[in-house]
Write a protein that binds this DNA or RNA. Structure first.
Lengths: 125, 125
DNA sequence: GTAATATATGAACATATATTCATATAATGA
DNA sequence: TCATTATATGAATATATGTTCATATATTAC
């Protein structure tokens, strides 16, 4: 009759407590995670990298990605909701730009990490 | 008979060229993107945040996340493949730790961004 | 050697996500 | 006002992803 949910092993209760304490001071993981989710697509990452250079409109970005403007607009919506990009209207055209410095910093750090993985992290030839 | 694939509008060809040039100097987006994908899950992000404090074993992490050790191990594999975590064995126990400083830097920047979105980015009451 | 513990991994299934297509909105020009 | 251009968005479908369950591997104890 009893539930068996509590039979988990806990080797280091002290570490568990320390981890819980540290996590309690942070925003919910799901919230922070949404930011990474927004960057976790090659198309959206390309958009962000391009916007690091200059602001661009939807049809430019669509051409850059080689996908439809509709698909591009959907991607931009996700980036907007995650507060990664902003836009300004000039007539019929919406120009997108990065929302703040965090975005570039994230992409730069990730790019650096990727470079090291390719360069230095390979097999010990 | 002809394909209509080339009818895309290109408003700013100069910007498109500049973006292409900038992108050509970067690692492929799909590669960098894998890093964000690895962090784009609340469970994995929680693991990384916990490992920022101290190294932990699989069953500790499973207890922390409240999921099975199998699920935790699958998540750790993804983090390992993305070069975000490393482990060392002590007897039967594998202790996981962050792979390098980039990881913490990424999570810190993202956390900061999330905090600002909640704090400052809210509606203009 | 066998048993037990800690972790890893493959397959299957359920959910999440990205693109396409059709349609809606917003701004401009006639 | 009507047509056109630029972008946004909803629904549907196809693919990707996470968890579970069963099983495999590695280490230690006996």
């Amino acid at each position: 009759m009893s539930e068996d949910r509590c039979e988990r092993r806990i080797i280091h209760e002290d570490r568990l407590a320390a981890a819980r304490l540290a996590l309690s001071g942070l925003p919910p993981a799901a919230l922070v995670c949404d930011l990474f989710k927004a960057l976790a697509d090659p198309g959206r990452l390309t958009i962000v990298s391009a916007l690091a250079v200059q602001e661009m409109c939807v049809c430019d970005l669509a051409a850059l990605l080689g996908v439809s403007e509709s698909a591009t607009s959907h991607q931009l919506r996700i980036l907007r909701i995650a507060n990664l990009v902003k836009n300004r209207r000039d007539g019929q055209v919406l120009y997108y730009r990065l929302a703040d410095d965090h975005v570039m910093q994230l992409v730069e750090t990730a790019t650096e990490h990727a470079r090291e993985a390719v360069t230095g992290g390979g097999a010990l030839t």
